[in-house]
Structures are given as structure tokens and as C-alpha cells.
Design a protein around this nucleic acid. Structure first.
Lengths: 240, 240
DNA sequence: GCTCAGAGGATATGATCAAATCCCGCGCTG
DNA sequence: CAGCGCGGGATTTGATCATATCCTCTGAGC
């Protein structure tokens, strides 16, 4: 019943593609077997999520075809999918770009996140196992390390992993799928904020969150989550 | 700046395709000019939304190619987009189907709707103009008419139009895009419920909502909206 | 300032390849 | 002898590509 989990629609976990070298198609690779459009999708998704794309940047199909060495059809499908998720934007005149968010958009994302993520934290609190909490502590450690090193990309990766892990524990695929879509939307902006402000004074309600998880304090977890996301959105908003 | 609004990503208004006859391509039609993948997308979207698809039903690319007379690529892209929105589901073994919702999914959709739609009603209340309210009253009249006639499809169309109109008035494209995605998910289930229970005792908090809009009572509008969506989800839940 | 040609890029097609399912007949077992 | 499981080919269906067509924007020339 659990199928091969390729392509989970809007929900589900989407592990990043594991940086396969380049020339090879889907030939004899071991862990591969993924369709090309899925590979392209995950690559682009990671770029959006971890700020490899500038907000407002134009994205062309043929550019990606040349760069990724994929065919045109897989690239088109991956782009279509990302546009449907709001990660990319159709400009109307056949042009695709990374969305450039304004205050109004950030505010809507804040509303949506505040509505959904604390609820996920609440549910995760009731269901997460000790191993899950341990995993989150490990991720949080790597996150702190990235902050110490001032490594923005690693920080973004670990931060996302932390939240994704929590959301997965909530066992509410539809809700966590919605939240993933939200993250895709503010990913590029988050990156430029971190680039501008550095990683020094990044918010970290993660410690509170972990404590709440350990004590089974669902409301505490929800509060910590809300604090965390409000700080994050606040930072983006201040950076205009 | 407002482009041509083709393909609004996850957000934006998506008017249904106007039932063009059949044989013609995009030849000399006047109002057309839409790309084929967009036409296919809107057709399928309407089918999902208004219950022309059975929950659990399998959907094949080549079947749609044959049925819609479109090429393979446009169909593939439309399906990819609908899967990203959660309107369709990837079965893992290269098979696509209309999602079959269980109680857990309905419950998550209820949570998400409760979190977003009352907020949209609140915003709409502050911004909607008298013409907008009049339009919603007209739609509600058509809706009542459809109920009287026992015409399920028309009821679904008008009901969706009513909510879409309200959401558009909120001027929060990201939030209303999210809500649209939610509607796509429970569309097929809603249809079977209406088919089973008939249109006689359908919930209608619309009158309260319109009164609240007229008096500028944002909280009243939010309450009416919450009541409306809870009744709807409750009905689906009872039908399992 | 306007028109038109050219270039770049997006869209659409059909062919081709690969994979998964289905179906049927064979042989084995009770 | 009848029923059942299994292997393998046929068929359906999805994935990818190369190519052709069309659209949009840009800039030169009038």
C-alpha cells in the first residue's frame, strides 16, 4: 500500500535529490530510478527553498534544459508543478519568475502559518516518539552549528529539516503539505534576509519547542511554534 | 501590471472554460487564445470541483488525450498541476486517481478551512462594495433555485461561485488560493454526498453572511462562514 | 513615431522507449 | 480430473525526446 512514494502531490515528504554527478541519465544508478521530471522538480524545489534563486529572478525553460541536461518536457512539468504550488510565478506573457513578495504577501503567509503550524505542533506533541525528539535535537544541534559557522545555506537546510520533521510527526499529510507550500513561497525571501542580517541573531524557539515536546505540553509546543514563525516572518517583513 | 492572468498558479481566479464545441483547435475562435494545457486544466478542474469525477476513479493520460482531443503534453501538464494542488493523486505506480477521502482527511480539511475562510470573510467584509454584495445575492438566488429544482450540479456551481466571489473580495490572493485548493480536494466527495442526500436540506448560512456583509459586521460574517463550512464538512463526514 | 523583420523562447505534436499490468495457458497438486 | 499458482508474452499506459509552429519582444529603418 505504501507504494514507492514518488511524487507525493502537494503533501508528503519530498526528500531532496542526492546530488548525482551529472552526465548519467537514469541508467544504472542505484538509488535513482526516479523519473526525470521528479529529479528536476526536487532540484528546483531545493533551490527555491534554500534561496539559490533570487526573488524576482527570471526562470527560462531552455536555460534549465541546458543547465540540468534534462529534456524539455520534464523541465516543463516540474515548472508547472512549482507554479501550482506558488513557488514560481507565471508572468502572463509566457514568462516564469521567482515571486517577489511584498508586505501584503508576507502578511498573508503569516496568517496562514499562524493558523496551521501551531496546530501541527500540537498534534506532533501528542504523537512523536522519543526517537523523533532525539532526531530533532540532533537537527537542532546541526542548526546551531551552522549559525556559529555563519553558514546561511546549511542553516536554511537544517531549519527546514527541523520543521519538516515536526510536521511529519503530526501525521496530518494534508496540513503539512499546505505548510510546505507556504515555506516554498517565502524561501527565496528568507534567504536574502539571512544574507543581509547574517546568522548571528536568528530566532530560536526550538529549545522551548523541544522541552514542550518532551513534557508532552501541546499548548507550549504550539506557543513556541507561533513565536518562532512570527519572529521569522517579522524579520522578512522588516527587510521589506 | 495585471498581465493576462492566464494560469494563476495556486492563487487567482480561474474562470471555467466556456464549453467550446469540439473539433476546432485554437484556430480562429474569438475569445479563446488560451494555451491547450490551460484549457485542459480548466476542464478537468471543473470536473473535479463539480463532481464529474468519482472519488477513487482512475484517470489516464491517454484516456484524456482521446477524450479531449488534446495532445499528450498539455494533458500531462494539466494533470501535473492538478496533482500539485491535491485535486488528483499519484498512486505511486504511475497511476493517477481522484483522491478517496477518509475521516482523517476530512478532519484536516475542516481544520484548514476553519482557519482560513472565516478570516477571508472578515477581510471581504471590510472591502466589498455594494455591487459585490448585489452580485452575491444574485448568485445566492440562483443557488436557491438550483436547490428547488433539485439540480445538484448547478447547486455546486453556484455555491462555489458564491464563495469564490467572497474570497476574491478579500483581496488576499494567497489565502484564497489556498482555500481554492481545499475546495478542489473535497469537491468529488461533496458531489456524492449531495447525490445521496439530495439538495433539500442543504445548509445555507448565506443569508446570514449577506446580512453581515451589508451591515459591515466582520465578526458576524466570519461566524456565518464558519457555520456554513462546518455544516458542509459535517455532511461529508456523516456520509463517510 | 510607426512598421515590420528577426531572434529568442514557449507551446504542441507525434514518435519512440520503458515499465507495469493483464491475460492466458501450462504444469503441479489434491 | 478439477482447481490453483505461476511464468511469459501481449497490451496498455506513462515518460522522454526531437522537432515544428507560434508568440512576444526588440530594434532597425522609414
Amino acid at each position: 500500500m505504501q507504494a514507492s512514494d514518488t511524487q507525493g502531490g502537494a503533501a508528503g515528504a519530498v526528500p531532496p535529490v542526492e546530488a548525482r554527478s551529472e552526465g548519467e541519465k537514469q541508467g544504472a544508478g542505484q538509488g535513482a530510478g526516479l523519473p526525470a521530471h521528479e529529479v528536476v522538480y526536487r532540484t528546483l524545489r531545493a533551490r527555491v527553498l534554500y534561496g539559490q534563486f533570487e526573488p524576482g529572478q527570471a526562470v527560462t525553460i531552455q536555460g534549465l534544459v541546458a543547465e540540468l541536461g534534462a529534456g524539455m518536457t520534464p523541465v516543463r512539468e516540474a515548472l508547472r508543478r512549482l507554479m501550482a504550488e506558488g513557488a514560481l510565478e507565471f508572468q502572463g506573457n509566457r514568462r516564469i519568475s521567482v515571486p517577489l513578495l511584498g508586505a501584503a504577501e508576507i502578511e498573508q503567509l503569516l496568517v496562514a502559518r499562524r493558523a496551521l503550524e501551531p496546530e501541527l505542533a500540537r498534534r506532533a506533541c501528542a504523537r512523536i516518539a522519543v526517537e523523533g525528539i532525539a532526531a530533532m535535537e540532533r537537527i537542532d544541534g546541526a542548526l546551531d552549528d551552522a549559525i556559529r559557522r555563519g553558514h546561511v545555506h546549511d542553516y536554511l537546510v537544517e531549519n527546514h529539516k527541523f520543521h519538516a520533521r515536526l510536521n511529519a510527526a503530526a501525521e496530518a499529510p494534508i496540513l503539512s503539505g499546505l505548510v510546505e507550500g507556504l515555506w516554498l513561497r517565502f524561501g527565496p525571501s528568507l534567504r536574502v534576509v539571512c544574507g543581509a542580517f547574517g546568522t548571528r541573531n536568528l530566532p530560536d524557539m526550538h529549545k522551548d519547542l523541544i522541552i514542550a515536546l518532551k513534557t508532552g505540553d501541546a499548548e507550549g509546543a504550539a506557543r513556541a511554534m507561533q513565536g518562532d514563525l512570527e519572529q521569522g516572518m517579522e524579520m522578512i517583513l522588516r527587510a521589506l
